[in-house]
């Protein structure tokens, strides 16, 4: 009984480690050699559109509401201490340091990551990847690489847009509705937000998350069992694994950046 459990644990561990290995091989294959930006630019543009532009709506709407909720919640607490003028920094710092990168990454995993996994899994199931390989075209460089770059470049940009819209949402609720002084909102923000400490660290965070989410999504698709059940499982795994990885890494990065 216990031996069985031990064996299962061992098998699961081995499987996980093998998964890491396969993901690394995939990554190496995709990034190996000179990227063919010139010849392949239409592919890249298309992926930037699919991965980045199409995720814009959900990012903007979520950013707006999260900013608005932050301002509302923050105001009720701050006003008890007569510290309403600190609403600007509260909204801006929460978004820049945490909510911008993290929520964008979670939304991105759900919106673009799942789509990437399903697309590549289906390509595998319909033998498109094999067919490409037999035509002497490397699917890692032709299919995986453009999607990887699109994800890694687009997501930090989306996180910035999310943060900016969130700050405007905070303004909408805090200043326009609850009557916090507009000058105070902006000037306190300017005084309390540090470029290196807050803005740059946020960008670093979202770049790390972008890499994590995109690699997980691509790997799950590329590694999917090529059946309808396998693809549905891979898509679910992408969202679950990517979200957990983002939250886990967020704690580590936060500890490193702001902990000491």
């Amino acid at each position: 009984m216990i031996l069985d459990k031990l064996q299962q644990l061992g098998a699961a561990t081995l499987e996980t480690i093998q998964g890491f290995g396969r993901a690394t091989l995939m990554l190496a294959g995709a990034l190996w050699g000179r990227p063919r930006f010139v010849k392949a630019w239409p592919l890249y543009i298309k992926q930037f559109y699919v991965v980045g532009v199409l995720s814009l709506l959900i990012i903007v709407v979520s950013g707006l509401f999260i900013g608005m909720v932050l301002a509302l919640q923050g105001y009720t607490v701050l006003s008890k201490f007569g510290a309403e003028q600190m609403l600007g920094p509260l909204v801006a710092l929460s978004l820049l340091r945490e909510l911008g990168p993290v929520v964008t990454a979670l939304l991105f995993a759900g919106r673009a990551g799942s789509a990437l996994t399903a697309e590549i899994g289906l390509m595998k199931a319909t033998e498109q990847l094999s067919g490409m390989e037999m035509m002497a075209v490397d699917p890692l460089r032709r299919i995986i690489a453009p999607r990887l770059w699109a994800g890694v470049i687009c997501m930090p940009l989306l996180a910035m847009i999310f943060t900016a819209v969130g700050i405007l949402g905070g303004h909408l609720v805090g200043v326009d509705w609850l009557g916090v002084d507009a000058g105070g909102y902006w000037s306190a923000m300017q005084a309390n937000v540090d470029f290196e400490q807050d803005v740059l660290n946020g960008i670093i965070k979202s770049t790390v998350f972008a890499f994590l989410v995109t690699v997980i999504a691509l790997h799950k698709g590329f590694d999917a069992v090529p059946t309808s059940e396998g693809i549905s499982r891979a898509t679910t795994q992408t969202v679950v694994t990517a979200s957990l990885a983002v939250l886990g890494f967020d704690f580590v990065l936060t500890a490193v950046m702001f902990g000491g």
């Binding site: 033998e127 094999s130 002497a136």
Partner: peptide
């Protein structure tokens, strides 16, 4: 592999391209 080719059971056409672009694909690549 450039000297051989394979016709898959499913056809394995690229579903995001027209028939023309599918046939042009190996020529454009190589």
């Amino acid at each position: 592999r450039k000297k051989m080719s394979m016709l898959f059971q499913s056809g394995a056409l690229f579903s995001d391209m027209t028939v023309f672009d599918n046939v042009a694909f190996p020529i454009r690549e190589h």
